[in-house]
Simulated assay, not measured.
Amino acid sequence: MSRTRHAWVLPASVLLALLLALLPLPLVVQPLRPYWLALVLAYWVIEEPERVGLGFVFIVGLVADLGFGGLLGEQALRLVIMAFILQRFRARLRFFPLSQQALAMGGLLVNDRIVASAIHLAIGEPVLPWAYWWAPLLGMLLWPPTFVLLDSLRLGRRP
């Protein structure tokens, strides 16, 4: 019953993550923008692996690529790599306390920056400035509140 009653949370959270990524920010804080889509999809891969797998993550990544106007397939590849690692270690990660999950997410977000830099380097695009490497730290700090909020919405409890 809770699955059908709260089925709206998955598409709404992914849509909100896409909109947050498209939200214009001043140039000063632009490098600190967390990768909201990765945080939201990481939650769903960990908590609902039968609904959110690599195919779903790939499609959402392609939608993000189309919406952001970047290299087609770049975000899809980055998100699939992250989802694959999460699926591989899901059984262990689910039982970590939120602080350790946040550290793991920080590592995944740094890995995402490395993959993005490698892609940009391979196709000859300029690599992001060093200030953009602070965003994984902010994403790591945002993991616990994001997890608690999505968990309470998914399970129907108050945050």
Rank of each mutant, 00 (worst) to 15 (best):
I81W: 05
L41N: 04
F58A: 15
A102H: 00
A38C: 07
L19G: 08
P129R: 13
R33G: 03
Y43G: 04
V115D: 03
A7W: 14
R92E: 14
P136V: 07
Q75Y: 10
R154D: 10
L108Y: 05
L16A: 11
P126G: 11
I85M: 12
L72Y: 11
L19W: 12
G139I: 08
P34K: 01
G139M: 04
L39V: 02
R33W: 08
P145L: 06
L18G: 04
L153D: 08
G55I: 01
G53H: 00
A7C: 11
W130D: 14
A131I: 06
F58N: 14
S13G: 04
E74R: 09
L37A: 02
A135M: 02
L39P: 07
P145G: 07
P136F: 02
A122Q: 11
A135H: 05
P159G: 12
F68P: 09
A91C: 02
L19N: 11
W130K: 14
G106L: 03
L25F: 01
L71P: 02
V57C: 03
G70T: 07
I59E: 12
P26G: 06
P129F: 09
R154W: 10
F89P: 10
L86R: 05
M105Y: 01
P145S: 07
E48S: 13
E74P: 03
E47S: 11
P159N: 13
H6Q: 15
L149E: 09
S13T: 05
V52K: 01
D112S: 13
V45C: 03
S152F: 03
I85T: 10
T146Y: 01
